[in-house]
Design a protein around this nucleic acid. Structure first.
Length: 809
RNA sequence: GCCGGGGUGGCGAAAUGGGUAGACGCAAGGGACUUAAAAUCCCUUGGGGGGUAACCCCCGUGCAGGUUCGAGUCCUGCCCUCGGCACCA
């Protein structure tokens, strides 16, 4: 055997990265692709810390899939960009005292270097950054499309206010009532004029479409829960004075047990319904609640508080007068902001009734102690509906009340309208001009972008007004409609608006006169495959779907779902915990790539667990992957020294039957597993194959070439290097994925387990596809089997082809 | 509380239209090579027991039951754990 040169990943990887860049290998023909495949991954936020191992895990998994598709002859477009606006970046800039406009380009530069180093098949021509005016011009344009369609509106609303960020944050960014970014800072309730997108209008469609999307179930479930559809009824409770109080309930069958009403403290009818002698108490309570943040209102299982209004309403079922209360456990944002309280069959109502000694009337017979919330019971104390099951009663009671004009079926969603206003600096200004005469007026499209002015002191303050208001030349502007003095909107938009459309921009980044080119868009979109984490299951993915739906309605795109196929990858954790800066367990990949090489590191990440489940980062096992690649290196070098017709090789395939069978089996498994993103088991299969080649000394061109192609998505640099060693001029990515012969893969003998009464008592080797009779004959010759059958009559024989034979005696 | 994942060797994990549990990798132990070490290669490795030996037996996939010739896989009831939502009526 000739001396094999050692494998030096640094040299190999630099060589191929340089060559891919020089030959523009990763740049498909965007205008005339034969078989376009848009391979998308979630673009990163360019943090100062650089790309972390979680990003690399996600990108590697997506990149493998893209390269796999390329080897199947697709023109794969794999773009990358940077989600660089937002409070993340701004806060970091504040903490280090550098302007984000200076900081972000540096961070992006670092990310670019890292993304190139790990060997992603990125088309750098189409790189984008959301902070580029050439990009956010169109973010603003999208805002205007929604504004003109009446889907963007201003509303004074209770919003989540983070005192640290000094800004409104979306419900989605409030975690258990605390700020997502400042886990020790409680979010407060404030009332501000905000811009909202009317996403709730699309709730039903967003929910329904999920059924026909090819998405990971985990992601779909998260979105379904987030949209939170509830079916029930709206029931009307009338006051003696004739005021109607609508309530939403999912349990209209329990209406006979409604012994009091509770309104949210902010409910518009409260003033009117408050009796004079209760007014002082009511007002005090309302002030108290307002002073509190939305958060502590939402913390469960605290003692209930509330005040009686001093007035009554009629239960539409029983006709009796029941007291009306206000309490902060009822939320104005959900349903009608008022509930009928059925303390016998609702835990919260029960707590409240107990606290304030309100009557509790059981209307569903139940074995358990109250409150029992079962839906499987039978009604009692419910007049003519006694004895009817809850399920039937739900329909019948609503029909009955409806006939009296006191109720109707109703559907509610948990989803709220999307508040996109941010009183911050680092984002695209909302393209609106406020005019005293005309109201809010959209900036004319030809005046876009409304550039974010450079403001040295971009710190937010507690006024609730964006720093942009302090830039007077920018702030004052003529009304585009009437020409009078107007003022610019000083809020910037939520980062999630930036990322809600970036996939539309990628194929068209070079066009400055349109957000996306119609032809390019028709060619590449919707996205063929989207791979990303479930941390974006409800925010980014829901907003993107919403924006696309609206754009489709307005005729700007031809499809309503941007991501027909989506796969969620798992999470990389460290020492059993999520990686985070505060825990200090964030792994930065650079050192690992330097030590082991990108190919080894990529494969290590894919081997540490199932891609779609994630796993614990434990670097002790990297060496196993390195050993595997060294074996491949050695085997291919040996093969390269051989010429066709070497002794020991068969004419034709040049492979021994055992190697040939294993090869076909391996191709079959690697193909199926890679398609399913089961990368860990695909790698195992390649390892088994290489182990066999080493065992049998069976290195030959015919044995290793298919292996290299299968390995190419996983370890692209090494595969290229060894492919060239085998005297291929062309890149391995111009080769085509090996095919397999299922019959060949399944050829040869099989070992069959022979059971007696379900316990394995012996193993026999027979030709694959052997008949039951043949196997029984062989099995009964087995001494151990005979011992257990022991002359007893065989009552029954169960045969599973090629797997198992079971004698029941 | 509600909605989802998931509990398999010392460790990461394979195997689910029910059919040989532990593939592949790490670690560990033993051996070869070496002055030595590293690297590499070979052997062993779920637990327990038996045999001079090729081998053989019992137990084993969170717990308790069930269905079945046969259960990691299906059913019932629990326990633990991770993620999401959470006073959503």
């Amino acid at each position: 055997m000739t001396q094999v040169p050692s494998y030096d990943p640094a040299v190999v990887e630099a060589r191929w990265q340089e060559r891919w860049a020089r030959e523009r290998s990763n740049e498909p023909d965007l205008d005339r692709p034969a078989r376009p495949f848009y391979n998308l991954m979630m673009f990163p936020y360019p943090s100062a810390e650089g790309l972390h191992v979680g990003n690399m895990f996600a990108f590697t998994g997506a990149d493998i899939y893209g390269r796999f598709k390329r080897l199947h002859g697709y023109d794969v477009f794999e773009p990358i960009g940077f989600d660089a606006f937002g409070i993340h970046s701004e806060n970091y800039a504040l903490s280090v005292g550098t302007h984000p406009a200076k900081l972000i380009p540096q961070n992006i530069e670092t990310f670019r270097r890292q993304l190139k180093r790990f060997g992603g098949m990125f088309d750098w021509r189409q790189e984008l950054s959301t902070t580029d005016p050439r990009y956010y011009r169109w973010t603003q344009w999208i805002f205007l499309q929604l504004f003109n369609a009446g889907l963007a509106f201003r509303k004074k609303a209770a919003v989540n206010w983070c005192p640290k960020d000094m800004s409104v944050v979306a419900n989605e960014q409030v975690i258990h009532g605390y700020c997502e970014r400042h886990p020790d800072t409680k979010v407060e309730q404030r009332f501000l004029e905000q811009w909202f997108f009317n996403i709730t209008r699309y709730a039903e469609r967003l929910l329904k479409n999920l059924d026909r999307l090819d998405w990971s179930d985990s992601t779909r479930t998260l979105q379904r829960n987030w949209i939170g559809r509830s079916e029930g009824a709206e029931l009307i409770f009338e006051t003696p004075a004739g005021a109607k109080i609508p309530v939403f309930t999912t349990r209209p069958d329990t209406v006979f047990g409604a012994t009091y009403l509770v309104l949210a403290p902010e409910h518009p009818l409260v003033d009117q319904l408050t009796a004079d002698e209760q007014r002082r108490q009511v007002n005090a309570y309302r002030r108290d609640v307002q002073g509190k943040d939305l958060v502590s209102r939402r913390v469960g299982d605290k003692t209930k508080t509330g005040v009686f209004l001093g007035s009554y309403a009629r239960n539409p079922a029983t006709g009796e007068a029941i007291p009306i209360w206000i309490a902060d456990y009822v939320l104005m944002e959900y349903g009608t902001g008022a509930i009928m309280a059925v303390p016998a069959h609702d835990r919260r109502d029960f707590e409240f009734a107990t606290q304030f000694s309100l009557p509790i009337r059981e209307v569903v017979r139940a074995a358990e102690p109250l409150p029992s919330v079962t839906e499987d019971g039978v009604l009692v104390n419910s007049g003519e509906f006694d004895g009817i099951s809850c399920r039937d009663a739900q329909r019948r009671i609503v029909d009955w009340l409806r006939a009296k004009g006191l109720g109707a079926p109703q559907v509610q969603y948990r989803l709220h309208d999307w508040c996109i206003s941010r009183q911050r600096y680092w984002g695209p200004p909302i393209p609106i001009i406020h005019c005293d005469r005309c109201g809010p007026v959209g900036v004319p499209e030809q005046d876009l972008p409304v550039e974010l002015p450079f403001i040295e002191d971009f710190r937010p303050d507690a006024s609730g007004v964006s720093p942009l208001a302090r830039h007077k030349e920018w702030y004052f502007v003529k009304c585009p409609q009437c020409g009078a003095q107007g003022r610019r909107e000083t809020d910037v938009s939520d980062t999630f608006l930036d990322s809600a459309w970036y996939y539309l921009r990628y194929p068209s980044t070079e066009f400055d006169d349109r957000p996306w080119d119609p032809k390019r868009t028709a060619t590449w979109l919707p996205v063929t495959s989207y791979i990303g984490g479930n941390e974006h299951a409800v925010l980014h993915l829901l907003y993107s779907r919403f924006v696309t739906m609206v754009l489709q309605e307005l005729g700007h795109v031809a499809f309503e779902e941007p991501f027909p196929k989506l796969r969620a990858h798992g999470l990389i954790i460290k020492d059993g915990a999520k990686m985070s800066k505060s825990r200090g367990n964030v792994v930065i990949p650079d050192a690992y790539i330097q030590k082991w090489g990108a190919d080894t590191f990529r494969m290590y990440l894919m081997f540490l667990g199932p891609f779609q489940e994630g796993g614990d980062f434990r670097d002790t096992t990297i060496v196993g992957i390195r050993r595997f690649l060294e074996k491949v290196w050695a085997t291919v070098h040996e093969a390269a020294g051989l010429t066709p017709g070497t002794p020991g090789s068969r004419p034709g395939s040049g492979l021994s039957p055992a190697v040939e069978r294993k090869l076909h089996e391996t191709i079959q498994k690697v193909t199926a597993d890679t398609e399913r993103l089961d990368y860990n088991t695909a790698i195992s299969a390649m390892m088994e194959y290489v182990n066999l080649l080493r065992e049998q000394g069976a290195s030959s061109r015919a044995a290793v070439e298919p292996l290299l192609i299968m390995l190419a998505p996983y370890a692209p640099h090494l595969a290229e290097e060894l492919w060239a060693l085998l005297r291929h001029e062309d890149s391995i990515f111009h080769a085509s994925w090996p095919s397999y012969d299922a019959k060949l893969a399944a050829a040869g003998d099989v070992e069959i387990a022979v059971q007696v009464n379900g316990k394995v008592r012996g193993r026999v080797t027979v030709a694959r596809g052997a008949s039951e009779a043949q196997v029984v004959a062989v099995a009964l010759r087995d001494e151990s089997v005979r011992k257990f059958v022991d002359g007893q009559p065989v009552k029954k024989t169960i045969y599973v082809q090629d797997r198992l034979l079971n004698f029941v005696v």
